[in-house]
């Protein structure tokens, strides 16, 4: 009886480990620029870019007590505002890359499918890119000019789950003068309606999933 319990516990533990590993990011090294993840469309939960020549990387890490570096999509359809947030690290410090986009009234996750194949110009006024330390939201920081390209946005097998893949590059002003260059960016995330999306109703409250 004791042995059976031990086997069941071991199998449960193995199951949890397999589940956590499956949700964590996979970094497939880029064959031309090995410091960055390769551009993929598989939902590998990874992203990367050069920021002033240094490497920023985002690899979703799922652990027992939570997860790190998850992507987030926040949408306010009433305000026609969509915020796409990628968290990662550079030189052992956390940094966030974010994009504020207008013209895509996202009220349910599947509305993001309209982004498929869209190359969006970041003009720093209507649409903008952001680069921020930590996990802060893009409030009052410099607005980046460049582009984000959602090369492939597609549904995964299960409902409420999308793959968001693409590239980005932008330049934003530093508060003390000069500018920051975010280049060769690429991302390939799984976006779950429950885990990674905050879709607010027109009234301002969160939508019921």
């Amino acid at each position: 009886m004791k042995k059976i319990r031990l086997i069941v516990n071991a199998l449960s533990l193995a199951g949890i480990v397999v589940f956590l590993t499956a949700c964590s990011g996979i970094v497939i090294q880029d064959p031309i620029e090995p410091r960055l993840p390769k551009y993929t469309e598989d939902g590998n939960n990874a992203a990367g870019a050069f920021v002033d020549g240094e490497v920023w990387r985002s690899v979703v890490k799922v652990e027992f007590l939570g997860s790190h570096y998850d992507p987030y999509v926040r949408a306010w359809p009433g305000k026609d505002s969509l915020l796409v947030i990628f968290s990662g690290s550079m030189a052992e410090r956390d940094y966030t890359v974010a994009f504020r986009l207008k013209g895509y009234k996202v009220s349910v996750l599947d509305d993001l499918l309209a982004l498929d194949g869209k190359k969006i110009e970041l003009d720093g006024v209507v649409n903008a890119g952001y680069w921020m330390p930590g996990y802060s939201l893009p409030m009052g920081t410099g607005k980046g000019v460049g582009q984000i390209y959602f090369k492939k946005v597609k549904k995964m097998g299960s409902p409420g789950l999308l793959i968001l893949s693409g590239t980005f590059g932008f330049r934003l002003p530093k508060p003390d003068g000069g500018s920051i260059s975010v280049s060769s960016g690429r991302f390939d995330y799984r976006i779950s309606e429950v885990e990674n999306a905050e879709l607010y109703s027109d009234a301002g409250g969160l939508q019921e999933h």
Partner: peptide, 13 residues
């Protein structure tokens, strides 16, 4: 050995 894309710094394929 490689089938891939030439992606520029802005993210154009």
């Amino acid at each position: 050995m490689l089938d891939y894309y030439d992606i520029d710094e802005m993210g154009n394929f």
